[in-house]
Design a protein around this nucleic acid. Structure first.
Lengths: 144, 144
DNA sequence: AGATCTAATTGTTCCAAACCATTATAGAAG
DNA sequence: CTTCTATAATGGTTTGGAACAATTAGATCT
């Protein structure tokens, strides 16, 4: 019927993406590494690079439900990694801002990830690394 | 301190992987597509290609905890997508085998994924698709 | 036969995410 | 200016995926 399901590039991508997500999920779920969890990392990263924003904007950015981001942001605030600042223009709205502690955690966590990745890609050529990074970025933009 | 965090390829890969996993997670969590869930898909896929095996082997293959696979396999059995066959050589052990129904679901689901991916990669060159597939496979093998 | 090792299941916990309902404020229309 | 509607954010609840720990039952080894 299908059997060797893997003739064409699209099928390869399709399957390998499924495998990838499984593998990455278990790695990031590993608490030995996790000073931050994945959601916290992306949120902090966004707040670090793009500056303060509300849950609405963050949810749009990551295509997450607002409630999801709301909870994640609340968790970060509770840990002191972000500050929640009322929007002076709109009594309903808030901004989140990364704190110094949050920045510190972000940098540490990112470095840990980089170290592990560097080890993992030890045998890869510079060219392959560059291509892979470019294609991943391109793919992410395609999804968006 | 860091700011443009994205000079070198490793950093690009590191960040884009985090983004990718987020995006893919929300897509596969979308129940409009999900006739199967992700874990079911990979399990069925493995049983389809590699033939029957026990939870032990499956857990090793995916680097999952045995308990996780046990539950996933039980769910599949409950839906009639796999049969659970006692190992005649070992009274403790079982094999799981994909059923016709399971195969049907697998094929349907895979086709749905392929369709969506094809649409997504509409603007991509054949070359980029091929490269991306190859690099993903290579990366997955590196993780393993 | 008893000690130990192994296959699998089940209880529990945690994280990530969705959907739905709710509260509170803003803005628009009468 | 008050009522209606739209929007910002939160919280309740459910689902899926995964881990770890404890348990049961069948192997294996001495």
């Amino acid at each position: 019927m299908l059997k060797e399901m893997n003739e064409n590039p699209l099928e390869t991508i399709e399957l390998e993406l499924a495998v990838l997500i499984r593998r990455l999920t278990s790695i990031t779920a590993d608490k030995r590494n996790a000073t931050l969890d994945r959601s916290a990392y992306l949120l902090l990263h966004q707040l670090y690079l793009q500056g303060s924003s509300g849950v609405r904007a963050l949810a749009d950015e990551f295509q997450l439900d607002i409630s999801t981001v709301s909870r994640q942001a609340a968790a970060l605030e509770q840990k002191g990694y972000v500050d929640k600042v009322p929007d002076p223009m709109d009594g309903r709205a808030y901004f989140y801002q990364i704190t110094d502690l949050g920045t510190k955690m972000l940098v540490e966590y990112k470095q840990g990830r980089l170290d592990r990745l560097t080890k993992l890609l030890n045998g890869w050529s510079d060219e392959d690394c560059e291509r892979f990074g470019d294609l991943l970025r391109k793919f992410n933009q395609s999804i968006k």
